[in-house]
């Protein structure tokens, strides 16, 4: 049984949209996520699940409440500090891959690590190859990112999210554009990461099947948590 290390904590998150009319998207939301957890956020469209994810991601700072990532309160950080925090602690996977089309897959994976500057270029390249191998793309490494299929591109973007060994990987509809086969591959990789790498995955999804197979599912309705389901008892 694993120890329960809190990796992310959200306290009383409230957020309003002002355009076209003032509208409360998130209503005093609080929850906690643990190390090695595969957490999914579900809810109808407009329930605020993506909005919540972007608040957690530190990219959206226009909310009230507190967010702690790995014990660090993010509210007080400046935008450059938040950028650094994202660089070393958070990996992102979106519905669209957002790979840089001019660069090879390998380079795309390497860029966040080059930005971090923890390793030298040779080590980074080695690590990028490792990550691509985990995702079964080692042989595609030197191809331009734009030449790959959709499923492959999405896997490259996952490798990119993993390169700095972030504590948390945040996903917004990671399988939204994928066929069943690729969805299965991505799911298996995520499962593996949480179990072996002790990394936390927080994924917004409307794929019910995908959510059911995650460790825990939080359901949002109109900006409030309406249900928390433990699908597997991996956590104590």
């Amino acid at each position: 049984m694993k120890e329960k290390n809190i990796i992310l904590q959200a306290n009383n998150i409230e957020k309003y949209f002002y355009d076209p009319v003032k509208f409360q998207v998130l209503r005093r939301l609080s929850f906690t996520s643990y190390q090695g957890e595969f957490l999914t956020l579900v809810g109808k469209s407009g329930s605020g699940k993506s909005t919540l994810l972007y608040c957690l991601s530190t990219m959206d700072t226009d909310y009230s409440g507190e967010i702690f990532i790995d014990g660090v309160k993010t509210n007080n950080l400046k935008s450059d500090q938040l950028a650094n925090l994202r660089n070393h602690s958070i990996g992102f996977v979106f519905q669209f891959h957002y790979l840089l089309p001019e660069f090879s897959c390998l380079k795309n994976v390497m860029i966040p690590a080059m930005k971090l500057g923890k390793y030298n270029l040779k080590e980074i390249e080695e690590r990028a190859y490792q990550k691509l191998e985990i995702l079964g793309l080692k042989d595609q490494a030197l191809k331009p990112a734009s030449k790959l299929s959709g499923g492959q591109q999405q896997r490259v973007s996952i490798a990119r999210a993993l390169i700095n060994d972030p504590k948390i990987i945040m996903c917004d509809e990671p399988t939204g554009n994928l066929d069943t086969k690729n969805t299965q591959i991505v799911f298996d990789i995520f499962k593996q990461l949480t179990q072996q790498g002790n990394q936390t995955i927080i994924a917004v999804t409307h794929d019910v099947d995908f959510a059911k197979r995650s460790d825990r599912t939080i359901e949002l309705t109109d900006g409030e948590i309406t249900a928390t389901t433990k699908n597997f008892e991996v956590l104590l």
Binding site: S57, M59, S79, D80, A83, N84, L85, R86, N87, H88, F92, Y98, L99, L100, I111, P112, K115, L116, R160
Partner: peptide, 9 residues
């Protein structure tokens, strides 16, 4: 995406 993965303004 560059900003998401940690590039500053």
């Amino acid at each position: 995406i560059l900003k998401a993965i940690g590039f500053t303004g």
